[in-house]
Amino acid sequence: MINTIIFDLGGVLIDWNPRYLFRKIFTSADEMEHFLTHICTPDWNEEQDAGRLLQEATDELVEKHPEYAEQIRAFYGRWEEMLGGTFDETVQTLKKLKESGQYKLYALTNWSAETFPIALSRYEFLSWFDGIVMSGEEKSRKPFPEFYTILLTRYQIAPNDSLFIDDNLRNVKAARALGIATIHLESPKQIETALQEYNVHI
Rank of each mutant, 00 (worst) to 15 (best):
T4R: 03
I6M: 08
D8Y: 00
V12C: 03
V12F: 07
V12M: 08
L13I: 00
D15P: 00
D15V: 05
W16G: 00
P18W: 09
P18M: 01
L21D: 08
F22C: 02
K24Y: 03
K24C: 04
F26R: 08
T27E: 12
A29P: 13
D30G: 02
D30F: 03
E31P: 06
E31T: 14
C40S: 09
T41E: 11
P42Y: 09
W44N: 05
E46G: 14
E46D: 15
D49N: 15
L53G: 15
L54I: 15
E56V: 15
A57S: 14
A57D: 02
D59T: 12
L61F: 12
L61H: 06
E70S: 12
E70M: 07
Q71I: 02
Q71A: 05
Y76A: 04
Y76K: 05
E80F: 06
E81N: 05
E81T: 07
E81P: 02
T86G: 04
E89K: 13
T90W: 03
L97V: 01
K98W: 01
K98S: 07
G101Q: 02
L108I: 12
L108E: 01
T109W: 00
T109A: 12
A113D: 12
A113H: 11
E114V: 03
E114Y: 03
F116Y: 13
P117C: 07
A119K: 10
E124T: 14
E124F: 14
S127F: 13
G131F: 01
G131L: 05
G131I: 03
G131H: 05
M134G: 10
S135I: 08
E138V: 14
E138H: 09
K139F: 15
K139W: 14
S140L: 10
R141P: 07
F144D: 12
F144Q: 12
E146G: 11
L151Y: 09
Q156Y: 12
A158L: 15
P159N: 10
P159M: 10
N160P: 09
D166N: 03
D166K: 06
N168W: 03
N171I: 02
N171V: 05
A174S: 11
A174T: 00
R176P: 06
L178M: 11
T182F: 01
T182K: 07
I183N: 00
I183H: 00
H184P: 04
L185S: 02
P188V: 04
E192I: 07
A194T: 05
Q196T: 13
Y198Q: 07
N199K: 13
V200I: 13
H201N: 15
